[in-house]
Amino acid sequence: MIRFEHVTKRYADGTTAVDDLSFEVAEGELVTLVGPSGCGKTTTMKMVNRLIEPTGGRIFLNGDDIATVDPVELRRRIGYVIQQIGLFPHKTVLDNTATVPHLLGRPRKEARARAAELLDLVGLDPSVYGSRYPEQLSGGQRQRVGVARALAADPPVLLMDEPFGAVDPVVREHLQTEFLRLQSSLHKTVLFVTHDIEEAVRLGDRIAVYGSGRIEQFDTPATVLGAPATPYVAEFVGADRGLKRLSVTPIETGDLEQPPVLHLDDPVGRALAGMAADGARWAVVLDSEEGLHGWVAADALGQAAEDGTVREHARRMEAWLPVGAPLKQAFSTMLQHDAGWIAVLDGDRFLGVLTPGRLHEALRRSTTADAANISRADVELQTVLDA
Score class of each variant (00 low, 15 high):
I85W: 10
G86S: 11
G86T: 13
G86E: 13
F88W: 15
F88I: 14
V93T: 00
V93A: 01
L94M: 11
L94D: 05
D95V: 13
N96H: 09
N96A: 08
N96C: 09
T97V: 15
T99H: 02
P101I: 03
H102Q: 14
L103C: 14
L103R: 15
L104Q: 15
R106F: 10
R106Y: 12
R106Q: 13
R112E: 11
R112Y: 09
A113H: 05
R114D: 03
R114T: 10
R114L: 06
R114W: 06
A115N: 00
A115Q: 00
A116C: 02
A116Q: 00
L118P: 00
L121C: 03
G123E: 10
D125Y: 08
P126I: 12
S127D: 13
G130M: 04
Y133L: 03
S138C: 02
G139I: 02
G140P: 04
Q141A: 04
R142I: 05
R142Y: 03
R142Q: 15
R144F: 09
V145T: 09
V145A: 05
G146N: 06
V147T: 07
A148D: 05
A148C: 13
A148Q: 12
A148M: 12
A150P: 03
A150Y: 12
D154A: 01
P155D: 05
V157G: 08
V157N: 04
L159D: 08
M160C: 00
M160T: 01
E162L: 11
E162K: 07
E162H: 11
E162P: 06
P163A: 14
A166P: 11
A166N: 14
D168E: 12
P169M: 14
P169R: 14
P169D: 14
V170S: 12
V171Q: 13
R172N: 09
H174W: 11
L175M: 15
Q176F: 10
Q176K: 13
E178Q: 15
E178T: 09
Q183P: 11
S184Y: 00
S184C: 00
L186Q: 00
K188R: 07
T189H: 13
V190S: 06
V190Y: 09
V193M: 09
T194E: 15
H195V: 08
D196R: 09
I197S: 05
I197D: 02
E199H: 05
E199C: 05
V201R: 04
V201S: 01
R202N: 08
L203P: 02
L203Q: 04
L203S: 02
L203M: 13
G204L: 07
D205A: 07
R206W: 07
I207T: 06
I207Y: 06
A208Y: 07
V209H: 12
V209T: 12
G211L: 07
S212I: 04
S212E: 11
I215K: 05
